[in-house]
Simulated assay, not measured.
Amino acid sequence: MRLLVDRRVPAAPRLTPAGERILAAASTLFYEQGIRTVGVDAIALAADVTKKTLYDRFGSKDRLIAAYLEERDRAWHRFLDEQLASRQPETPEAVILALFGALTDWLAGSRNGCGFINASVELAAPDHPAMPVIVGQKQWMRAEFEAQARAAGFTAPNELADRLLLLHEGALITYRVAAMPSAPEVATRAAQDLLTTWPRT
């Protein structure tokens, strides 16, 4: 079985070596220290470039934030492809549980949880260029849950998708905020219970 919903993630931009260093440095700093606390001076220093080069490549810090999240989205989808290839789920229900199970490996060794959720808290402005990336990533997760639920023959697949997304995102938040390392495993078990009891058409 495979993922069913097209992932409309922008293709990776063509960057110069300096641009690649800037994006890599920003990605590490933004995720580890927070978007608002990291300034362009720190990013330029870590990337061994001037601020002028940073602005030449990305235009603004806000655009760099959006580029960071777009690359994180691409990384997440590549990771899911690898997870499904290794787990080889044979039914839509197994795909859903594999999406939950992937959280354990994705979060391994990380203290900071979901970069998209973290960014959404820090970026209060709804018109920030990164917000469509954040919203789109979560909408895709919900759409994939619904598509798999529909393929499995569950009734009210939209309602089931809503509940699965709440479990999935709740695990990400609880992992960090409540310092609960087992949150992905608990969410996976809860999703399995939900799928076991949900009626079918």
Rank of each mutant, 00 (worst) to 15 (best):
D81T: 12
F79K: 09
E82L: 07
I43S: 00
Y55Q: 03
P129Q: 09
R163W: 03
A130Q: 04
P126A: 15
P126Y: 14
R8F: 11
P126G: 13
A149W: 07
A191D: 09
T37I: 11
A130I: 04
G34V: 02
V40K: 00
L64R: 05
E70I: 09
E146N: 01
T28P: 00
A187I: 02
D81K: 05
G109R: 09
Q83T: 15
F30Y: 15
G39W: 01
H168T: 03
I65A: 01
S27Q: 08
A42S: 10
S86P: 00
M141Q: 14
P199Y: 05
W140F: 13
M1W: 03
L172C: 10
F100W: 11
R21M: 05
A119H: 06
T155F: 00
G170L: 11
P13Q: 13
E144T: 07
A18I: 01
A183D: 05
L195G: 07
E32N: 03
A161P: 03
D62M: 05
D48R: 14
L167P: 01
P17E: 08
G59E: 13
E159F: 06
V135L: 13
A47H: 03
K51T: 11
L123T: 02
D41R: 14
L123P: 01
A119F: 06
E159M: 11
D81N: 10
A125Q: 15
A26W: 06
T174L: 04
L195C: 05
A25W: 00
G34C: 08
Y68Q: 10
D162W: 13
V9T: 14
E169P: 00
V38C: 02
L4P: 03
A102M: 08
L103R: 06
L167S: 06
K138A: 14
V49Q: 04
G39A: 11
T174E: 12
L99E: 14
R63C: 05
L80V: 12
I22K: 02
P181Y: 07
D105S: 13
A183F: 03
G109W: 10
T196N: 07
L97S: 09
L164G: 04
G153L: 10
A119D: 08
A156I: 02
G59Q: 12
A46F: 04
D162F: 13
M1L: 10
Y31E: 07
G101L: 04
V186K: 04
E146L: 03
T196S: 10
D62V: 06
R189M: 03
L80K: 04
A125I: 04
L4H: 08
E146M: 12
N158C: 05
Q192M: 06
D56S: 11
L3Q: 10
V177L: 15
L80R: 06
S27V: 03
L3K: 06
